[in-house]
């Protein structure tokens, strides 16, 4: 019976990797992937807690999160396509038309 906190620690690590990924990477797509990874880490935490609490609420919420994430991906990729059509790069650095 692996104590729940192991899962939570693992999820926290993955979440942080996602955060670092978003901060470090310059490519819009990779940033987007790390955000998805963060979402997944949250899902893992919720599932672990759901088991520990014995209630299904957590799992159902995770299911809803998946649907939300899928919708988000659809919109995100459409926007990225939009950008690429105008300019041939997805490097976040180069998209600095809007001055600071």
């Amino acid at each position: 019976m692996v104590p729940t906190s192991y899962y939570l620690i693992l999820a926290a690590i993955i979440f942080t990797l996602g955060v670092i990924g978003v901060l470090v990477r310059r490519n819009a797509l990779v940033i987007f992937m790390s955000v998805e990874m963060m979402m997944n880490a949250v899902n893992l935490t919720l599932v672990a807690l759901a088991r520990q609490k014995g209630s299904l609420a957590g799992q159902v919420f995770v299911f809803l999160i998946m649907a939300v994430a899928a919708a988000e991906v659809a919109i995100g990729l459409a926007i990225v396509m939009e950008i690429v059509r105008h300019r041939d790069t997805t490097n976040v650095d180069e998209l600095n038309l809007l001055k600071w």
């Binding site: 906190s5 939570l8 620690i9 926290a12 979440f15 942080t16």
Partner: peptide
């Protein structure tokens, strides 16, 4: 960030369910 969250998360001793 990890240290903070990890500690917060790990600190609680979860009763095995």
């Amino acid at each position: 960030f990890l240290a903070g969250v990890g500690y917060a998360v790990g600190a609680r001793a979860f009763p095995p369910a």
